[in-house]
């Protein structure tokens, strides 16, 4: 174990811990755009700089390993000035449209700019040329003008998703996140949306017709119902409607989802979705109450009892495992039939 002091607080952490993580253990959140536990170190946003006693350099804490007796200051005057300049530089090339941006309220650039008093009127002028939005993906779009080049999307796609659809193109200020001929399909993208999940700004955002503000939603933690992995997710609910699915980083999926978990939620609020049981009356399926439906099943059961081949049960992959278990149990044990199937074909 290593003892060190961060902002006057003593802490003891494991060897090889980074200063950034040690600080986190103390509840001190050092700002960073590009650091992510799941990804290789890029050390490029330079926001996680700290002052360490004994050196007058500013060091990035995301790749700085703790040392015995280290005295770290994450809030010194020097650090704050550098951070304010760093953020002001980004702001200088960033569209000033937080009021319209779908990321507002959850945007790290916005949060840090608030924390470090970045002025709304840019104090610097950088010679950035606007790059058009790219909407070639069905589910999301990328706005390079809002990209701060943290490279998280690039790294998650290649290091975690294993697709490697994204990369950087050009250099200097002309650098942008690129993908096969600037078309997501050419890039082999599987539309898992992991890049969208990690993007700290509004550069990568879902396409959506829903208008909502991020402080106006409820988040419901749940398990994805599509397959057996059990990915953890948060349903983002606005006025009773699911408007987005966020991946949860604590589950075994560690913040990743597949295209179904991330984007195939529209059926929930779809107008064609069945919300009541249907019962066939005069050759036509019509909406009914559960009482009616159960009565019908009961009646048919008594009518054909003993003729096991007369029964068939069909359930849905949208039900939970437990529900499906009970369903097949009932058909096998009560209706005495093996005619049972479900629609898990997605």
């Amino acid at each position: 174990m290593i003892k060190l002091i961060i902002n006057g607080n003593q802490i003891e952490v494991e060897e090889n811990t980074t200063v950034l993580k040690a600080a986190r253990e103390l509840g001190i959140e050092i700002p960073t755009f590009c650091d992510d536990d799941r990804l290789s170190k890029q050390t490029s946003c330079r926001l996680c700089i700290v002052e360490v006693e004994g050196t007058d350099k500013l060091l990035t804490s995301c790749n700085l390993e703790v040392k015995e007796g280290m005295v770290v200051n994450t809030e010194s005057e020097k650090v704050r000035i550098a951070l304010k300049i760093n953020l002001s530089l980004i702001w200088a090339g960033h569209p000033n449209d937080c009021m319209k941006c779908g990321k507002s309220g959850e945007c790290k650039l916005q949060d840090y700019s608030f924390e470090y008093d970045v002025d709304a009127e840019p104090i610097y002028s950088v010679r950035k040329e606007a790059i058009a939005k790219n909407a070639t993906n069905h589910f999301f779009e990328i706005d390079p003008d809002k990209c701060i080049l943290c490279g998280k999307c690039v790294r998650i796609c290649s290091e975690q998703v294993g697709v490697g659809a994204l990369g950087f193109k050009n250099r200097g200020q002309e650098t942008y996140v690129s993908f096969g001929n600037d078309n997501f399909e050419d890039a082999g993208c599987v539309s898992c949306g992991s890049c969208v999940s990690v993007c700290p700004t509004g550069a990568l955002l879902n396409k959506t017709a829903d208008k909502y503000r991020n402080w106006d939603v409820d988040k419901v933690r749940t398990t994805c119902s599509y397959c057996g992995v059990g990915c953890q997710m948060e349903l983002v609910v606005h006025k009773g409607k699911i408007v987005r699915v966020d991946a949860n980083e604590e589950g075994s999926n560690r913040g990743l989802l597949c295209v179904k978990g991330k984007y195939a939620f529209n059926f929930i609020n779809h107008r064609d979705r069945l919300t009541t049981p249907l019962v066939r009356k005069n050759g036509k399926l019509v909406e009914a109450t559960w009482e009616e439906a159960y009565a019908k099943i009961n009646q048919k059961y008594l009518e054909f009892k003993g003729e096991s081949n007369s029964f068939v049960g069909f359930s849905s992959a949208r039900c939970t495992n437990e529900e499906n278990y009970l369903f097949q149990k009932m058909f096998r044990q009560v209706f005495k039939t093996n005619n049972i199937d479900h629609c898990a074909r997605l």
Partner: peptide, 12 residues
């Protein structure tokens, strides 16, 4: 273009 201070700072 990798890090912010150099990419944006030198232009500023």
């Amino acid at each position: 273009g990798k890090c912010t201070p150099c990419r944006e700072g030198t232009a500023a």
